[in-house]
């Protein structure tokens, strides 16, 4: 390992959707396996990921999502039932590829010491209480994240 090599991975998660919740967990657990430290700052809609019982119920929207393998025009994708349908399909592709469920990746992340930081300001805006969020996480603000990210870190945002 060279001396200049980054020692930390600092991720910002801003989306509470199935597709956007995966990369932070995959990358942060991989980082710890590579002997780096990792933290994820969950802010705005990303805070949804940390709510008790929510992580395996996140959805993916087919609206304005032209990369979905199932090609549906937006005018049809916006109809009731299309988001749950797209979510069922994506979950089945993930299962087929043996990708762990998000709750399993979350447990792995906590077990490996990935710091999961819920955004205090988002909690205030959305009326979320500490007891609404899962155990084992921290609550903090921009400075909490930046202090971690300011030391030899790769920073990514999802």
């Amino acid at each position: 390992m060279s001396e200049e090599s980054a020692k930390r991975l600092a991720i910002i998660a801003t989306h509470g959707t199935l597709d956007m919740a995966y990369p932070p967990f995959i990358l942060s657990t991989a980082a710890v396996a590579m002997e780096m430290e990792a933290a994820i700052f969950f802010t705005f809609f990303g805070l949804e990921i940390l709510k008790k019982g929510k992580i395996d119920k996140l959805k993916v929207s087919p609206v304005a999502n032209p990369a979905m393998p199932m090609k549906i025009p937006n005018i049809i994708a916006m109809l009731p039932g299309m988001t749950p349908l797209a979510t069922i399909m994506m979950n089945s592709w993930m299962r087929k590829a043996k990708v762990p469920k998000l709750s399993e990746l979350l447990e792995t992340a906590l077990d490996m010491g990935v710091r999961l930081i819920g955004c205090q300001m988002t909690m205030d805006v959305m009326g979320v209480k500490k007891e609404d969020l899962i155990d084992g996480i921290e609550i903090g603000g921009a400075a909490t994240f930046l202090e971690f990210a300011s030391q030899n870190a790769i920073t990514l945002s999802f």
Binding site: T29, V32, P100
Partner: peptide, 12 residues
């Protein structure tokens, strides 16, 4: 049968 990132996590 395991997909990314599990092989490296389990290796570590």
């Amino acid at each position: 049968g395991l997909s990314c990132p599990m092989p490296i996590i389990k290796t570590k």
